[in-house]
Design a protein around this nucleic acid. Structure first.
Length: 633
DNA sequence: GTCCATTAAT
């Protein structure tokens, strides 16, 4: 590929002496001159495209200089290519200048300009050019329309997108697949999942882009979801779309695979993840760095640090993100030694860590209370790598001091840093104060947090629990009132467990499950045994389940069963004796459940992995990888 | 000259 453009380039550059012979005074006949011009236009067009595929802005500028020097006009073939070239190299201004110099602008010129705006983050400008184009009575073609729709995607301009859609139907493109893909993706981007689904259902033909868009759209919906509950619904939807894709006979590509692997990692769906691993190998995409990194992340998030590490070692190439993923994975699993060693290996391998890498490193130090090391890395980050600390870095340090019970030092950092502490900082401090019995500082932090008017129920439940256990009833009713003002309901506490290719969901005290008698019996039995081993639930805890019919007096037990307990019971009953149990939960775990599950892991000799809305907990033989401080409620 | 564009975080 690369040799052909080189030939074209050297051919054009040698034309300079020929060009010099060309002024109007030349003795050449009209005909030869026309022929010469044509040839030169052709050569320049080819050369410009060559610059584009060679990624050479320098040669491109050189050519442009010739064009100006010899007053060669921007005939569309040259102007359009030049416009795209400048766009590709990020100088939108130059692209616009060239465009304006094109004598007879055709559809391609306009389309090149419009997509140039999109490529350079000027979507709104692109839309204005599109309108200008319509005023000039130039009819857009399918290329223009798809470009404009992608601008609407960036701007989340649903209204404009709909108008473009109707225009495209008017122009006879109603069955154009590319345009339909664009419109569908616009709906997905804007969160109109039903409309996207309707469009998708009505499509007679689809291609991989259609499916990738659907999967990526639902994966994105997981990110944007207000609560973990709806996030997991989007995730399961993405998975089911992927399963349907496999049945169509279309072959997923590396985009599909890395998207869906990420979905699995968020759903802790290890079994699907393993199948995807096999599929990645079979289809030859294992060598893709992004898919490989997604695989490492999937194993780690599903609780298997061994397999994550194996997948990392087996990667043929790694990027900084791959290293960061692995470092963070070790940190999350409480393996600080390996995390820090890997960080040194990464530096030795010549990779430059970024701010997220340092979040992982600081988290690893903080986890085991290595204060000096943490502060050392914090300094290295700023001095050696010129990375300005952001909120997250301070968060790691504060979490470290909080964990150690050195609350004054944690508070000092909050006071000294350049940021206004957000909800997260105050929540950390409050949880720490409660854990270490420092009431006064806790109340102060709570005041600060309330001033920020948090938007999530979890935060308020944490505050309620704090005030309830301190018996500050006035504050309790103040918080309740504030929750009403902010229109916050109770927590939607759901847990999911994925067994084979099915995701099973449970809610607190839920009784809809066909196996519920067995599950409750098992839990009763475990609770008795746990109490024998010294498990003592705290009495005063804010009720955290939602208000629905199932919540009435529990006929089987007087104890409250948060959703993860049901999911674990289901897991114990439906998996092999020594298989690990993996559960995800929509809200943060409460201290009672955390204590209880520690005991269960011992009683049942099971590894239990729970990802709640804050972090990963891996319970083995009565201990948790969060080092006993991952519970805020 | 066009559609999807994937990976890391307390």
């Amino acid at each position: 590929m690369a040799s052909l453009p080189s030939v074209a380039l050297s051919g054009t550059l040698k034309l300079e002496p020929e060009l010099k012979k060309l002024p109007a005074s030349s003795v050449a006949t009209e005909k030869t001159r026309d022929w010469f011009y044509l040839m030169i236009y052709d050569m320049i067009g080819i050369a410009l495209n060559a610059c584009s595929s060679l990624n050479s802005i320098k040669l491109g500028r050189q050519l442009h200089a010739y064009i100006i020097k010899y007053e060669i006009d921007y005939d569309p073939s040259i102007g359009n290519a030049l416009c795209s070239l400048y766009s590709k190299f990020g100088s939108l201004d130059s692209a616009v200048n060239v465009f304006q110099g094109i004598g007879e602008k055709n559809v391609i010129s306009w389309t090149a300009l419009i997509s140039a705006c999109g490529e350079n983050g000027e979507a709104a400008l692109g839309l204005r050019f599109f309108i200008a184009m319509l005023f000039e009575d130039i009819e857009p073609n399918e290329f223009t329309l798809t470009s404009v729709l992608s601008l609407c995607c960036v701007m989340l301009a649903l209204g404009a997108g709909r108008q473009v859609h109707s225009l495209s139907i008017k122009l006879g493109y109603q069955s154009n697949l590319r345009i339909k893909n664009s419109v569908m993706y616009l709906y997905l981007k804007c969160g109109c999942m039903n409309e996207a689904q309707n469009l998708f259902n009505k499509m007679k033909s689809t291609n991989l882009v259609t499916w990738n868009a659907m999967i990526a759209g639902h994966a994105q919906a997981m990110d944007l979801a207000n609560d973990d509950f709806s996030a997991y619904q989007s995730g399961t939807e993405a998975l089911s779309i992927f399963l349907k894709l496999n049945r169509t006979g279309l072959k997923p590509d590396h985009f599909t695979l890395s998207s869906i692997l990420t979905v699995c990692s968020r759903l802790s769906a290890l079994e699907q993840g393993e199948q995807l691993h096999a599929q990645t190998i079979k289809s030859g995409f294992l060598s893709d760095v992004v898919a490989g990194t997604a695989l490492v992340n999937m194993y780690s998030k599903c609780g298997s640090i061994q397999r994550a590490s194996k997948a990392f070692v087996e990667m043929s190439t790694r990027t900084m993100i791959s290293w960061t993923t692995m470092i963070t994975s070790f940190a999350q699993h409480g393996q600080h030694q390996q995390a820090l060693q890997l960080f040194e290996d990464m530096r030795l391998a010549g990779f430059k860590p970024n701010q997220i890498t340092f979040v992982g490193v600081l988290a690893a130090c903080g986890h085991v209370g290595m204060v000096d090391e943490a502060l050392g890395y914090f300094e290295m980050m700023q001095k050696e790598y010129r990375i300005k600390p952001v909120m997250d870095h301070y968060g790691c340090l504060i979490a470290m001091f909080v964990r150690l019970g050195r609350l004054e030092e944690a508070f000092d950092i909050i006071k000294k840093m350049d940021f206004n502490p957000g909800e997260f900082m105050w929540s950390l401090l409050i949880a720490g104060c409660r854990f270490h019995g420092k009431q006064e500082l806790g109340f102060y932090a709570a005041e600060q947090l309330l001033k920020l008017k948090p938007k999530d129920t979890e935060t308020y439940v944490m505050l309620l629990n704090m005030y309830i256990s301190a018996e500050r009833w006035q504050d309790v009713s103040k918080v309740r009132k504030l929750m009403k003002e902010e229109k916050l309901g109770k927590l939607k506490d759901w847990s999911w467990i994925s067994i084979k290719d099915k995701v099973h969901s449970f809610k607190t005290n839920g009784r809809l499950h066909p196996h519920n008698a067995e599950m409750y019996n098992l839990l009763e039995e475990l609770l008795e045994k746990a109490k024998g081993l010294g498990y003592q639930p705290l009495q005063r805890m804010e009720v955290i389940h939602d208000d629905e019919e199932e919540e009435e007096n529990n006929p089987i037990s007087s104890a409250e069963y948060h959703s993860e307990r049901l999911a674990i019971a289901f897991g114990v009953l439906n998996t092999q004796k020594d298989a690990p149990i993996r559960v995800i939960k929509s809200v943060i775990m409460c201290k009672n459940c955390h204590d209880f599950i520690k005991v269960i892991s011992k009683l049942c000799s099971r590894e239990i992995i729970i990802r709640d809305s804050r972090r990963l907990h891996r319970f083995v033989d009565g201990h948790c990888s969060c080092a006993e401080f991952g519970v805020l409620l």
